[in-house]
């Protein structure tokens, strides 16, 4: 990159979360998800709304009354587990070597 001329036009403030995630390196574990949801407990405890709100990667969404997790996009912060009611989520780190792999950090 040269000098002070800063001509890139893309605006960092207008990119969507999926666009941002697309810049990251992920090693997808195709065999197992590290997130399992207990729909009953999730619904009964109001966990669904909480995990949808706190997840910075937009991993959780509601589809046909079920909470689904797009685990491939997970940034592994553990925030969802921290706000989930006991038993609503089974969340662990992905298997060794899988998942997000920061190049900057």
């Amino acid at each position: 990159m040269g000098g002070g001329a800063c001509t890139v036009t893309s605006d960092v403030t207008t990119t969507s979360v999926p666009e941002r995630l697309a810049k990251n390196r992920f090693v997808l574990d195709e065999e197992e998800s590290h997130i399992e949801i207990d729909q009953e407990v999730c619904r009964a405890t109001g966990t669904a709304a909480r995990i949808i709100a706190v997840c910075p990667a937009g991993v959780y969404s509601e589809q046909d009354g079920q909470v689904v997790a797009d685990y491939a996009a997970c940034l592994e912060c553990g925030t969802c587990l921290a706000v989930a009611a006991p038993g609503a989520l089974r969340w662990r780190y992905p298997r060794g070597g899988f998942g997000v792999s920061f190049r900057e950090g």
């Binding site: 403030t13 995630l21 990251n24 940034l75 921290a82 920061f102």
Partner: peptide, 27 residues
């Protein structure tokens, strides 16, 4: 909240023209 932050008129001039190369979160 993060979007609001990036777009804040006080922040935006510092970021202008930059390219987001990584997005992450951590507790």
């Amino acid at each position: 909240v993060f979007d609001h932050y990036l777009a804040h008129p006080v922040l935006a001039p510092y970021l202008r023209g930059g390219e987001m190369v990584e997005y992450g979160s951590h507790l």
